[in-house]
Design a protein around this nucleic acid. Structure first.
Length: 575
DNA sequence: GCCGTTTTCGGCCCGACTGTTTTCAGTCG
């Protein structure tokens, strides 16, 4: 993933430049990084085909940045970046994650105290060395200690799947109050980002004081940071902070738009406002001092010549242009999903029987459910061998008969989640794979291999096995625990393209794999995807919400997601 | 460092808050 690597370098350069108080250049590098991150084609490929000229044709890549990309591609290094690193060998990315410390403070701390990483930052703060530095002080030092502690405890972010249920519960509690007129969760949670920093809730109310009382005294609040008539802020027992803001009814739409973000989206939108001689802020859209739009988000987007944009794609990845041109994607939604293809039964390590799973799937309104038990190699999950798979298939046949007799059109599909062994082979005989409706394959062992070996393992062997239809959790990352495998994702995309293999969007909240950016790349490459839950208990099938949210963030439409298709069409596409 | 229906220079998003100051720099969203 050369694009991602170079993007990361540019992000860091942007911070180094900010540190030196350089104006505007940081912005240029940031934009270049964002462009690279979401670029459809491999940057190396672009360079090979069209040289420097082709690089310069990419938006936000000019003369100088093109040359730097060329340098990375041809030498594997970037002197400009290395010089920054040499001058200031600090873990900038880690340090600026501490609330209240930005690039400029980081620089001072390095020069005065030699602080190069989080540990040293904490040490310096705890030994009282930070307070005496000009521009810092006691309060800043205490804040740094608290911020570092927080970061260590939580890595600074919370998982969407952990935080959304809590936030919804709070929102429901407030919604029930007669003093609350409108209420909405804003921020990255509304955008359904895979990880969330804190929660912003917006309300309108004629009598906020009682709402604030309820908010700050509700169960789960462990600390009240502040309580006023327009804003209250609390820490919840789960460790994240929640803000409640009371918004004047008239500017509700403007505030909702503003607090939903993302920052990049808002910057782009404000720019458009400016181009039209208008000004956009959290109070509304203004021409001079005259208010043009503010009550609803729709009003604001419309006044800027755009249709309303779903929060999930407000990430500054071209959504505003698309909205203006009328080419916004018709995003996939939960109700489009006809069935879940990745559910484990109690034949392997799952908790529930196939019949219970089917009942649950019917309750969810699905047309089918695919049982994809683990296979032989995965002993810890009681993986099924060929004989067991056949026995289980027999049970599925009997249950399908039963469904048919009772007049239900619901179908249980025979699948498995086979293991991709280190040499790329599949741990089940082809003969048995052929008897299944579909085959998922995934890596569950030896997750640390060289990039070349892991890429080949997944691509050449597994994807080209004629029976493998879907690749489960393709990049292998576990949020806050484990990075992606070392893989060349572009190669995986190519293999999927060539073989028609679908890539899974795994909805399990610690995986969310593919992630939003990779979904967008897969979509652009015309690759089919499949939003599954990997449920090990029937009720986990509800987690489809999280996968769908990521699919939406990756601009996926019904046509991109095979389990949004009628079952016959879906099955036909696999074989 | 990028960009251009303001096109090779002169712009580049904006406001609030915090902590440090005594008029503002840095950070955040």
């Amino acid at each position: 993933m050369k694009n991602q690597e170079i993007a990361k370098m540019f992000y860091e350069i942007s911070k180094f430049l900010e540190m030196d108080n350089v104006s505007f250049k940081p912005y240029a590098y940031q934009k270049a990084a964002l462009t690279l991150e979401t670029l459809k084609d491999d940057i190396g490929e672009i360079y090979r085909k069209g040289g420097l000229k082709a690089l310069k044709e990419i938006p936000n890549i000019g003369e100088n940045i093109a040359k730097k990309i060329k340098e990375v591609l041809t030498t594997g290094r970037l002197r400009y970046y290395e010089e920054f690193k040499k001058k200031m060998p600090i873990d900038l990315d880690e340090i600026v994650r501490v609330e209240g410390v930005g690039p400029i403070k980081a620089k001072v701390l390095y020069e005065k105290l030699g602080v190069a990483n989080l540990r040293q930052l904490e040490e310096a703060a705890r030994s009282g060395k930070i307070a005496p530095i000009a521009g810092f002080g006691e309060k800043t030092q205490a804040n740094i200690i608290e911020a570092v502690e927080f970061l260590k405890r939580s890595h600074g972010r919370f998982l969407l799947g952990e935080i959304l249920p809590v936030a919804n519960e709070v929102a429901d509690r407030l919604r029930a109050l007669k003093e609350v007129k409108k209420i909405e969760i804003a921020g990255s949670l509304r955008r359904m980002k895979e990880t969330i920093g804190d929660v912003d809730i917006l309300i309108t109310s004629d009598d906020p004081s009682r709402v604030m009382d309820v908010f700050t005294s509700q169960p789960g609040v462990v600390k009240i940071w502040g309580k006023g008539s327009t804003k209250s802020s609390v820490r919840m027992k789960e460790g994240f902070d929640m803000d409640l803001r009371v918004i004047p009814s008239r500017s509700y739409g403007a505030a909702l738009q503003y607090f939903t973000g993302s920052k990049e989206h808002n910057i782009a939108l404000r720019k458009i406002a400016m181009d039209r001689g208008l000004k956009l802020n959290e109070w509304g859209l203004f021409k001079g001092s005259h208010l043009i739009a503010s009550e609803t988000e729709e009003d604001i987007y419309r006044a800027l010549g755009s249709s309303w944009i779903p929060p999930e794609i407000r990430e500054g990845r071209g959504e505003i242009d698309a909205a203006r041109d009328g080419t916004l994607p018709d995003l996939i939604s939960v109700k489009d999903i006809r069935g879940d293809l990745h559910v484990h039964s109690n034949w392997d390590g799952g908790a529930d029987s196939i019949w219970d799973i089917a009942q649950f799937a019917m309750k969810m309104g699905y047309d089918y459910v695919g049982i994809s038990d683990h296979t032989r190699f995965l002993k810890i999950e009681r993986g099924l061998d060929e004989k067991k798979i056949r026995e289980r298939n027999g049970e599925i046949d009997r249950l399908n008969e039963k469904l048919k007799r009772s007049g239900r059109r619901f179908k249980i599909l025979k699948g498995c989640e086979a293991n991709i062994m280190t040499d790329g082979s599949i741990d089940i005989e082809d003969e048995v794979l052929a008897e299944l409706d579909y085959v998922i394959a995934g890596v569950h062992s030896r997750v640390k291999m060289t990039r070349a070996a892991m890429t080949e393992r997944i691509c050449r062997a597994a994807m080209e096995n004629p029976y493998v239809d879907i690749l489960s959790h393709p990049t292998g990352r576990i949020l806050k625990r484990r990075d992606e495998y070392e893989i060349d994702f572009d190669q995986i995309l190519k293999a999927a393209q060539k073989t028609g293999t679908a890539l899974e969007v795994n909805s399990y909240f610690e995986r969310l794999d593919l992630n939003d950016v990779n979904i967008l790349r897969a979509k652009k490459a015309g690759i089919r995807m499949c939003v599954n839950t990997d449920a090990h208990r029937a009720d986990q099938m509800h987690q489809i919400t999280f996968g769908i949210a990521q699919a939406r963030r990756g601009w996926a439409e019904k046509k991109d997601i095979i389990n949004a298709w009628p079952v016959e069409k879906m099955l036909a596409s696999l074989r």
